[in-house]
């Protein structure tokens, strides 16, 4: 896997804003960011209302994804460039989601909205309208998505990478310190998980660290390259960022994202939970 196949730079993006067959898509949790100014020509996908089923706790199904992309004016032949705030958390989530439904021509804008803004590149508030398409998705590629039973079975056998902050990992907090504390019934982490906060994979401007740095970070943390890996966080967005680093940048073959993450695992009855830093013994 080479970086050029999965990442584009801000400079390349600015030169290709009007390139035929390239669609820029902003994905955010805070959708007011887009309204305050977006990359010229970019359409928006709302992580919460458009990618999640609004009744069941799950993704929109294949037909729902087809309807969404058709309405956004994205066709099967388009190269989709995703970017967003929060160091590309939700853009990485959408990237994984596009892969899940079989859209191969998708890339992340390295550094996302932050890098774009820090570079002083143009943003506008123009309403973007693209002609509707007739998008056709594939069945979900479950080789990149982990469910809870598989996660419980992975304890002590696969690499489990908890990408939350140390205070969430140890059980002190149930959500990042700047967000509302919600949902999981218990704090802690999945036994045998290593803790490598997502932020280790990013430079301060939001771009990904080099392959050499990433290898050292995960190797030093005890990730065993001979084993398969499941990454998780609280709701699956930060772990998409780490999934991207491990699977798309470092080329680890069997890496799954557990999108149920701690909000599911920490509410299950009867599963083992470990507290503390995990380094005591």
């Amino acid at each position: 896997m080479s970086r050029e196949n999965v990442l584009v730079s801000a400079a390349w993006s600015e030169e290709n804003l009007e390139a035929p067959g390239v669609v820029f898509v902003e994905v955010d949790e805070d959708t007011t960011a887009y309204e305050g100014g977006h990359i010229p020509g970019a359409v928006r996908i709302d992580w919460k209302t458009e990618l999640q089923d609004q009744v069941r706790r799950d993704f929109v199904d294949r037909a729902g994804f087809e309807a969404l992309l058709s309405a956004k004016g994205i066709s099967n032949d388009d190269t989709v460039i995703l970017y967003g705030g929060n160091n590309n958390w939700f853009a990485a989530y959408a990237y994984w989601y596009f892969k899940l439904y079989g859209h191969d021509a998708v890339k992340l804008l390295d550094g996302g909205r932050k890098k774009w803004e820090l570079d002083g590149r143009p943003l506008d508030k123009d309403v973007v309208e693209r002609a509707a398409t007739s998008y056709s998705a594939k069945d979900q590629d479950l080789s990149i998505r982990a469910f809870r039973d598989e996660v419980v079975a992975a304890i002590g056998t696969k690499n489990l990478v908890d990408v939350r902050s140390p205070d969430e990992f140890s059980g002190k907090l149930l959500a990042p310190a700047h967000l509302p504390q919600e949902q999981a019934q218990r704090g802690g982490h999945i036994p045998s998980a290593i803790n490598v906060p997502w932020s280790k994979a990013a430079n301060e401007d939001g771009t990904f660290r080099s392959d050499e740095e990433l290898k050292a970070i995960y190797g030093d943390a005890g990730l065993d390259g001979s084993k398969n890996t499941i990454a998780y966080c609280r709701i699956g967005e930060r772990s998409s960022h780490t999934w991207f680093a491990l699977h798309e940048l470092l080329g680890h073959e069997d890496v799954k994202n557990y999108d149920g993450s701690w909000t599911e695992y920490g509410s299950l009855v009867g599963v083992p939970v470990e507290l503390g830093s995990g380094k005591e013994g």
């Binding site: 705030g85 932050k114 803004e117 820090l118 902050s165 310190a177 700047h178 906060p197 301060e204």
Partner: peptide
């Protein structure tokens, strides 16, 4: 519009807001 990062006493990233 500044990206404000909270780093702990070891310089480790903790949170970021705009």
């Amino acid at each position: 519009g500044a990206y404000v990062r909270l780093l702990d006493s070891t310089g480790e990233f903790t949170a970021e807001v705009v």
